[in-house]
């Protein structure tokens, strides 16, 4: 069954075409990897699919419903949840409270809301930071906090924006294992990643974006062989060919400071 279906999604920022006519489907329980050079539009795609940014054109269907006009908080409650490439903790809160806020959104009872956060913190390996201020966390832990908050919402589909960025290779294994477990539990995953080895290992399918457009889609093997992909990745060719982790400075890139949030107030003239 198709869980997420995106059709003709387009978005421009003052003349810059960040997304152009992007379409794809994700079946329930599958893992879709999204790759593409810097500025390809991956984060914008997540923002538009999750509702954080209103697309200029196109539709998004989730679990059989047309959610194109739904605000992001409604999509999140329906189980379509994103994480942010740039970490956005609630700074004044403890790590636990960060997760608890999210847990309450979907909690059926107070007791459930109180129990859930600790379990989630355990899973992502943040239990020992439980009572620390979230601003005091190191970057790698902040990444995991992003994941923890999203998990606390008990999502059906997770949009993960570079969860491995900034992690040293040794730290990646556990996160990748966790993603595998999540899939086994029935959570559908769409993830953006520059670390090629992770994409190849985890994805059932891969979507390649370049300059806002889908230039290739298919199994990891199909995509790697595609000449258009190689061309788009000219600089990263080595990384692609070797299939090794793209440890060449491409990960940990948080270069895009304006994470689609400071779009200007819409003005009528």
């Amino acid at each position: 069954m198709t869980l997420l279906s995106v059709r003709g999604l387009s978005k421009s920022f003052r003349g810059v075409r960040a997304l152009h006519d992007v379409s794809f489907d994700v079946a329930d329980g599958r893992i879709l990897g999204i790759i593409g050079p810097n500025g390809a539009g991956k984060t914008t795609l997540f923002a538009a699919v999750s509702g954080g940014v209103a697309a200029d054109a196109g539709t998004v269907r989730f679990a059989g419903q047309d959610v194109t006009r739904w605000p992001d908080h409604r999509r999140a409650r329906a189980g379509l949840v994103r994480t942010f490439q740039l970490m956005r903790p609630f700074g004044a809160m403890t790590v636990l409270d960060n997760v608890a806020v999210a847990a309450q959104v979907r909690a059926s009872s107070r007791a459930a809301a109180l129990a859930a956060p600790d379990a989630v913190l355990d899973r992502v390996g943040l239990a020992r930071y439980r009572d620390q201020r979230s601003t005091e966390l190191p970057a790698a832990e902040l990444k995991r906090l992003e994941l923890a908050r999203a998990l606390a919402l008990r999502p059906r589909l997770l949009l993960l924006d570079e969860v491995l960025a900034g992690l040293v290779p040794a730290e990646r294994g556990p996160v990748l294992d966790l993603l595998g477990t999540l899939r086994d539990e029935g959570i559908t995953l769409v993830f953006v990643e520059h670390v090629m080895a992770a994409v190849m290992r985890l994805s059932d399918e891969v979507l390649v974006l370049d300059q806002g457009q889908v230039i290739a889609a298919g199994t990891p093997a199909e995509v790697t062989g595609d000449p258009r992909v190689v061309e788009a990745y000219l600089g990263d060719e080595a990384a692609l060919a070797s299939g090794d982790d793209g440890d060449d400075g491409n990960d940990g890139n948080d270069g895009n400071d304006d994470d689609a949030d400071d779009e200007d107030p819409e003005t009528p003239c």
């Binding site: 421009s12 209103a54 200029d56 819409e266 009528p268 003239c269």
Partner: peptide
């Protein structure tokens, strides 16, 4: 929602 192109300065002065 489609975005209209921003008005030029002259056009804005004319509106004013």
């Amino acid at each position: 929602m489609t975005r209209r192109a921003p008005l030029s300065l002259a056009a804005r002065l004319a509106v004013a």
